[in-house]
Deep mutational scan, measured.
Amino acid sequence: MQIFVKTLTGKTITLEVEPSDTIENVKAKIQDKEGIPPDQQRSIFAGKQLEDGRTLSDYNIQKESTLHLVLR
């Protein structure tokens, strides 16, 4: 499925993911596309910070959902 990741600069990245993917996985995909190390990424969805060990389905993130990426 496709999800979108919006950065603070307003750029939107499209990722191909599975509901079973962990947040860690997703951060690795963002690193592949953007070169941002996962330890600098904070992902926010529906106002909640997403934890690395959880999966997209844990957070009820579905296709075409938009995550927000904040850098630390």
Rank of each mutant, 00 (worst) to 15 (best):
Q40F: 09
K29C: 05
L69S: 02
K6G: 03
L15M: 04
K29G: 03
Q62S: 10
T55K: 10
T9A: 11
L56K: 01
T12A: 03
K27I: 13
A28H: 12
K63A: 15
I36C: 08
P38M: 15
K29D: 03
Q41E: 07
K27A: 07
M1E: 01
L56H: 03
G47Y: 06
G53C: 06
V17K: 01
T55Q: 06
L71W: 11
T12I: 15
D52F: 02
S20A: 08
T66W: 07
K48H: 11
K48N: 10
K63L: 05
I13N: 00
R54V: 07
L56G: 01
L50D: 03
D52I: 05
I13Q: 01
I3Q: 00
I23G: 00
Q2D: 04
I30N: 00
K27M: 15
I61A: 00
T12W: 08
T66N: 03
L71G: 09
R54I: 07
I30T: 02
V26Y: 04
K48M: 13
E51P: 01
D58L: 02
S65M: 11
L8W: 15
K63C: 05
I13K: 00
G53W: 14
Q62H: 10
G53A: 09
G47V: 03
G47S: 04
V5A: 03
V17H: 00
G47K: 05
Q41M: 15
K48T: 12
T9G: 13
T55G: 01
S65G: 05
K27R: 08
G47T: 06
F4H: 07
I13V: 07
M1T: 03
D58S: 14
I3E: 00
E51Y: 06
Q62C: 04
T22G: 01
L69M: 12
V5Q: 00
E34G: 08
D32K: 11
I3L: 06
E51L: 11
E18D: 13
L67K: 00
Q40S: 09
Q62I: 11
L8S: 13
E24D: 07
N25C: 08
T9K: 11
A46V: 06
K11A: 08
A28F: 12
N25Q: 14
T22P: 03
I44T: 08
A46N: 15
Q2M: 12
L69Q: 05
D39H: 12
F4K: 06
K48Y: 10
L56M: 04
I30G: 02
A46G: 10
T9V: 07
T9D: 14
N60Y: 06
Q49I: 15
E64N: 15
E18P: 05
V17I: 04
K63I: 06
P37M: 10
E18A: 12
K27P: 01
S43V: 15
Q62Y: 07
E64T: 05
V5K: 00
E34H: 10
R42Q: 14
A46M: 14
A46W: 13
K33N: 08
M1H: 04
T7W: 11
Q41N: 08
T66G: 01
I13Y: 08
G47I: 05
T22C: 03
H68K: 07
D39P: 06
V26M: 06
G10Q: 02
R54T: 05
D52P: 09
D39K: 07
G47R: 02
T14R: 11
E34V: 15
Q41P: 08
K29T: 04
V26S: 00
Q2R: 14
E34F: 14
T7P: 02
Y59C: 03
K11S: 07
Q40D: 10
V5F: 05
I23T: 02
L56A: 01
S65C: 05
Q31W: 15
K27S: 05
G47D: 08
I36W: 14
D52L: 05
V26C: 04
I61D: 01
E24H: 11
I61R: 00
Y59G: 01
V5W: 02
F4G: 01
G53E: 09
Q40H: 12
D32Y: 10
R54C: 11
I61H: 02
E34N: 08
P19N: 04
N60H: 09
L71M: 11
L71Q: 09
E18I: 11
R72A: 13
T12Q: 06
R42S: 14
S43I: 15
I44A: 04
K6Q: 09
Q2T: 15
F4N: 03
T66R: 03
I61N: 03
L15N: 02
E34C: 14
R72T: 12
Q31S: 12
L8G: 10
K63P: 15
Q2P: 06
P38E: 10
L50E: 02
M1I: 11
N60I: 01
D39W: 14
K6D: 03
T12N: 03
I3D: 01
N25Y: 11
T14S: 10
D32Q: 13
T9Q: 11
D58I: 04
P38F: 15
K11Y: 11
Q40W: 11
Q2F: 14
D39G: 09
E64S: 10
V70Q: 08
M1N: 01
F4S: 03
I30H: 02
G10E: 03
F4C: 04
D21P: 00
D21C: 05
E24C: 06
